[in-house]
Write a protein that binds this DNA or RNA. Structure first.
Length: 421
DNA sequence: GTCTGATGTCATCGG
DNA sequence: GTCCGATGACATCAG
């Protein structure tokens, strides 16, 4: 007889192991994923945008002793502005903001040759401290309220997440960061930022790919001509935290923080949604937006006076985050189902082989038993004699086994229908 | 350049 | 009708 235990089950583990290594679940992995910056994985810009492509220029932090060149500042500014500009569902004009003339609500612009530090930055606790860049860049003449407003967002981001603001800014809370945040804020009017026409992806009005800041980082696009196009005259509608004091920055140059989406300490910069939330001044972390239960989430949302664009972004972030986890779980289940079915197939195949072997064994045993029974039958039949000592004819008589074990010789024409009776 | 796996996202469906 | 999870389909990217 075959041994079922000898059947080797060949379980296809490759896919499941691979999955286990790649499909992460739970908050930690989700955070890792959310925090993963993939600047080199973003799709290229649509050619119609006509953005000049340049090389990725090193960025330097002036407070760290380096020099934040114009390109470096542009990188910073663009990184955030594009994460803003990709937001959809914002009540913004459909025209592309790449044409300054289309941003009619923008504050008067300083002519390009006058590009330099914002003149109103002097009112801010954090000032634009490095020298004016040598290149030209239009900048709004008038600025909104205190720039401390724009320092708040980074403070609000959960401590459990990467602090996007400082990370993006090379963890320097000094002038470059403030300039960036002011630039970001300047991108919003009451209807939100001007938005490229190409950004029409999310069903709730969020752009997903083209203008992602990570792709900009990766491709080193020149951004200065777009960054200052948004007006800078509206503060977020919710209370702001005190301004972030200007601190000397002893961190590595920003080029390190932007390269490969990592901070100078090698930490992952916030995810795209985190940067969106940062740019939109969402006063709570993406982690909470995604992971909070419905009731807690609703309570959290109602706790802050959020604008419609902010609510749309929050709902989109939550939906995408939930769906991301759901997709991961779905794929995990699919792989587990596949592995289970493969294992079941192997087991059933082995069972079939075992049953076939059993059947062969049984057939051989049956044939042997029949052969032995026939021989025994013939032997017994031949030993029987009638009163005259003659043998019985096999054509006329048969031997039958009674229920009590007795053997009877009966004529064939007297055989009962059921021999066992 | 092509192929493949991983991943994110969207659309859709069903509970 | 709305919400939300599940899942197929698609796009993108990396190796």
């Amino acid at each position: 007889m075959s041994n079922p235990g000898s059947c080797t089950l060949q379980i296809h583990r490759a896919s499941s192991e691979n999955f286990a290594a790649t499909a992460n679940f739970g908050g930690t992995q989700l955070e890792q994923r959310l925090g993963r910056a993939r600047p080199d994985k973003m799709p290229p810009f649509p050619p119609q945008q006509g953005w000049a492509r340049g090389t990725f220029l090193p960025l330097h932090n002036p407070l760290a002793g380096g020099e934040l060149g114009p390109q470096g500042e542009m990188e910073l500014t663009w990184q955030e502005i594009l994460s803003i500009s990709e937001l959809q569902g914002l009540e913004m004009p459909a025209e592309s903001c790449y044409d300054p003339a289309l941003c009619s609500h923008a504050q008067p612009m300083v002519p390009p040759p006058s590009y330099g530090p914002c003149t109103e930055m002097g009112d801010c606790s954090i000032s634009y401290s490095h020298p004016a860049p040598a290149y030209e860049r239009p900048f709004p003449e008038t600025l909104p309220g205190p720039c401390t407003v724009y320092s708040y967002t980074g403070m609000l981001i959960s401590s459990s997440l990467e602090p996007p603001g400082p990370a993006i800014l090379g963890e320097c809370k000094g002038a470059p960061g403030m300039v960036l945040e002011r630039d970001l804020a300047s991108c919003y009017g009451p209807q939100g930022p001007c938005k490229p026409q190409e950004d029409l992806e999310s069903d709730s009005g969020l752009s997903l790919n083209y203008s992602d800041a990570e792709s900009l980082e990766a491709e080193g696009l020149e951004r200065a001509e777009y960054a200052p196009l948004y007006p800078m005259d509206h503060a977020p509608p919710y209370p702001m935290l005190p301004p972030v004091p200007e601190l000397p920055c002893a961190n590595p140059p920003l080029e390190h923080s932007l390269e490969k989406g990592r901070s100078p300490r090698g930490e992952l910069v916030g995810s795209r949604d985190e940067r969106r939330a940062l740019a939109m001044n969402i006063p709570f972390p993406v982690e909470k937006i995604i992971n909070l239960p419905v009731d807690d989430f609703n309570e959290l949302v109602t706790r802050f006076p959020l604008s419609e664009p902010q609510l749309a972004l929050i709902r989109d972030i939550r939906r995408r985050g939930k769906n991301k986890v759901a997709a991961q779980n779905c794929r995990k289940r699919k792989l587990e189902t596949l592995v289970h079915l493969e294992r079941e197939l192997e087991e059933l195949s082995c069972e079939r082989q075992r049953l076939l072997q059993d059947r062969g064994e049984f057939n051989r045993t049956l044939a042997l038993t029949k052969q032995k029974l026939g021989a025994l039958y013939h032997q017994v039949f031949c030993m029987l004699r009638d009163e005259a000592g003659n043998t019985y004819s096999p054509e006329e008589y048969v031997l039958q086994l009674a229920a009590d074990g007795g053997v009877f010789l009966v004529p064939r024409n007297n055989q009962p229908d059921n021999p066992s009776d």
